[in-house]
Simulated scan of single mutants.
Amino acid sequence: MNEEKLNIEILELIAASLANEISIENKKKLDLWISESPLNNNVYNDYVNTWELFNKTEITSEINIDDEWEIFKKSAKINEGKIVKFKFASLLKYAASIIIIATISITVYFILNNNKQTEIIAQSQVIVNTLPDGSTISLNSNSKFSYPKVFNKLQRKVKLTGEAFFEVTHNSERPFIIEAGKVLIEDIGTSFYVRYIADENKTEVIVKTGKVAVYKSNNPEQKTYLEAGEHGVFSSTKTNIIKLPENNENYIAWKTHKLDFENENLQNVIKVLERTYNKKIIYSPSISNCKLTVSFKEQSLDAVLNVLKATLNLNIVQKQNYIEISGTGC
């Protein structure tokens, strides 16, 4: 049975249940569907609540039962010459439940479909994608991003594991929210970078333009605001968010292909190179504190390594899955 037919059958079972006209066999089918997931249970409860509200509403004398019955007969193509086995009251109740189902089934359809997620996985290269609202995400290698095919009316919530750069189409009535581990990042008209690696037990947010609000998923009232040029670090083992200044854009070198180092320790340079070029680099402790001042633009990893080798008198060996750097120290 395809998904569309299944949804129609479930709606019919719910309608029969609300009208107390459901068979024992169909009741078992409905109960099984409800127990399959929390979403199914929530959808069923929404129908029940709507039906209970309908039953509490007084039917006024403006409704002519005879006229309504004639309309129902014509629409249902009932032949007067045939015996109708439904009791009239039950039939009206069942018909009413069908009407209730029909009026909110579109909403339920969108609830079910909005729950469907599109997942993007960047393995060895950067992926740039435009979201349904016009926002753009640049996803670095070894990262995963998911979002609903259709954003709901209240918010645009997405999920990130890894690192990405966002250029968000701002909409104050439908905030753009990124879930990165235990941290939520809410756009307030901006472009910004997010890095969340589960093994590192921290989430980093760097704002390039505009402003963002960062807060813990279980404490949305306690927000930390970051503005352009600020770097926020949230540790999963601590409650506070550390704010730091951000003086260069090496954090998005994997996107811009621009690197700028000024009197930087070589160990920090290597970390940036690993994330920029998606290559594991092993280095000897003796060279970790060597200082480097240099800039690169649209350069290959080989070109960058050749400059490091010549500048710091290093030994660089290309292995199959990694690069090994050594030297006498500085």
Rank of each mutant, 00 (worst) to 15 (best):
N2I: 12
K5T: 04
L6V: 06
N7I: 09
E9N: 11
I10W: 11
E12N: 09
A15K: 04
S17H: 15
S17F: 14
E21G: 01
I24V: 09
I24P: 00
L30V: 05
L32I: 08
L32C: 05
P38N: 10
N41I: 01
N42C: 07
D46Y: 07
N49L: 04
N49T: 14
W51C: 13
W51I: 14
N55H: 10
E58R: 13
E62P: 04
I63T: 07
I65Y: 05
E70S: 08
I71V: 05
K74E: 04
S75T: 12
G81T: 01
K82E: 10
V84Y: 10
F86R: 01
L92F: 03
S97Y: 12
I101A: 12
I101S: 13
T103Y: 10
Q117A: 01
Q117S: 08
I120E: 11
S124R: 13
N129P: 01
T130P: 01
L131W: 07
S138K: 11
N140Q: 02
S141G: 15
S141N: 13
Y147A: 00
P148Y: 10
P148R: 15
N152W: 10
N152S: 15
Q155T: 02
K157I: 15
T161Y: 14
G162P: 02
A164V: 01
F166L: 03
V168Y: 09
H170K: 06
N171Y: 15
N171K: 03
E173P: 00
I177C: 06
E179S: 08
V183T: 12
L184W: 06
L184T: 01
S191F: 13
Y193M: 03
R195A: 08
D199V: 13
K202E: 11
E204K: 03
T209W: 01
V212A: 03
A213E: 03
Y215H: 06
E221A: 15
K223W: 13
L226H: 00
G229C: 08
K238A: 10
T239N: 13
I242Q: 10
P245C: 05
E246T: 03
Y251N: 07
A253L: 02
W254D: 01
K255V: 01
H257E: 11
H257C: 07
L266E: 08
L266M: 03
Q267D: 04
Q267I: 06
V269G: 00
L273W: 13
P285N: 09
I287K: 04
S288T: 06
T293N: 03
S295G: 00
K297W: 05
A303C: 08
K309N: 02
A310S: 03
T311A: 12
N313D: 07
I316H: 07
Q318G: 05
I323Q: 12
I325K: 05
S326A: 11
S326D: 06
